[in-house]
Design a binder for these strands. Sequence first.
RNA 1: CCAGUCGGCUGGAUGGCCGCUGUCCUUCGGGAUAGAGGAAAGUCCGGGCUCCACGGAGAAACGGCGCCGGAUAACGUCCGGCGGGGGCGACCCCAGGGAAAGCGCCACAGAAAGUAAACCGCCUCCGCCAAGGGAAUUUCUCUUCCGGAGGUAAGGGUGAAAGGGUGCGGUAAGAGCGCACCGCGCGGGCGGCAACGUCAGCGGCAUGGCAAGCCCCGCCGGGAGCAAAACCGAAUAGGGACGACAGGGCGAGGUCCACCGAUCUUGUCCACCCUCUCCGGGGCGUCGUCCGGGUUGGUUGCACGAGACGGCCGGCAACGGCCGUCCCAGAUGAAUGGCCAUCGCGCGCCGCAAGGCGCCAUACAGAACCCGGCUUACAGGCCGACUGGCUCU
Length: 150
Amino acid sequence: MTRPEDGDTLSTHAVSGVRLGVLRLKKRADFVSAAKGRRQHQHSFVLQARERDPAPDCVESARVGFTVTKKVGNSVVRNRIRRRLREAVRLADESLFQLRCDYVLAARREALAAPFDELRGELARALKKIHRAGSGRSPAAQAADRKQDL
RNA sequence: CCAGUCGGCUGGAUGGCCGCUGUCCUUCGGGAUAGAGGAAAGUCCGGGCUCCACGGAGAAACGGCGCCGGAUAACGUCCGGCGGGGGCGACCCCAGGGAAAGCGCCACAGAAAGUAAACCGCCUCCGCCAAGGGAAUUUCUCUUCCGGAGGUAAGGGUGAAAGGGUGCGGUAAGAGCGCACCGCGCGGGCGGCAACGUCAGCGGCAUGGCAAGCCCCGCCGGGAGCAAAACCGAAUAGGGACGACAGGGCGAGGUCCACCGAUCUUGUCCACCCUCUCCGGGGCGUCGUCCGGGUUGGUUGCACGAGACGGCCGGCAACGGCCGUCCCAGAUGAAUGGCCAUCGCGCGCCGCAAGGCGCCAUACAGAACCCGGCUUACAGGCCGACUGGCUCU
């Protein structure tokens, strides 16, 4: 599973707007289960995270999904918020994401007008906090896993 | 120059770095190229397309539309006219068929809201009490008040609307009672494809309004929608039909049947299988073909079209014809983005000015099968035609 040639399969999966190693979350069931995980509130969004159940056929990568409800605004506003969040995830440090973990970013209205650097900062802070609060593996162990993976 | 009417256009530009989706190329490193709107919106009409239903035609019911002619695949859209209303005008507005087919309604006010009627009035006649006046001095007559019988609809008053309007004549007072003009109606001439207009004649008031209350007449309409629909593959559960194969005992039930027996369904046990024994499980079906259903994924549908641009021709126009050139988003938890630079626009401040600084770095809004419309939203900017004024020549 973690042998070097798996890099090829991962790169073929990196197609949905996020970089290699961080896939896109698409199934409704995944969103529902992620909502049961831990939460980290920020000014522009709410981050939800949940470690995936280890299934043998599953990919190792972290996955990220976006939720922008109609309460936030019309379709133009919703599209713009989703694109800004997606870009923030793309530019974020990949090591902040934990393997075999699903993340959901639930946008708030403030994500529309917030300065982009601020948005990135909030994302990095939320990711750090949510892992520190968790009872999972230590960041060092995760880093070790990632080095092995690459 | 000012005020205004109508129509149309635009909806920041260029570049850099890092990304996304489709297509093409690839030496698999990557490269090339395309990538939101005028409303993509609301989903209100009209079509294409797909499936379902349906023998043809008609009727009823329901729904929609409604001056006339044209355009169109079609429309409730568009164009050109007509009629009515408004504006000095450019121009704007109209749910604009039928009220002598029928039913119904017309609040409040008012006497009366539709087979007309008569509150105040006005007028005539009759009666008589009282008062006053005149002529005459047993009487006659006039006026006012009161009562009764009638005439009338001019005036007042009510109302959105009072059974044509104005004027003259006429009359006891009045009245289409008569006349003129206007309006209305009828048949006719002329112009127009038509809606309608116009001319003279006749009638003599008959026909109040509401059809967006029901209704009548004419025309149109089968239903549902791309989550339509078609196909492919996989796994799981497993329904139906046919065929082949698969051991036995016992019990129950059904069918054929005089009996024997055969056959089907079902319960249970054994053989047999899970290496062997106990336990447990299978045995209680297997295989093949076809049909049908569900879940999930993929492909098609799906972007060459009532297509875009340019030119010429026909038409007042909507629009049509011919020729040439072009291929122009295709996502599906859903691409079209993030940051930066320069220029531009707008606003504010400073400055006599050239200019400088700051802010915003932009309205409404994001394709989801595709077209034609309608409606609604829209910062700022631009263009054209026309009207009424003012000034100058």
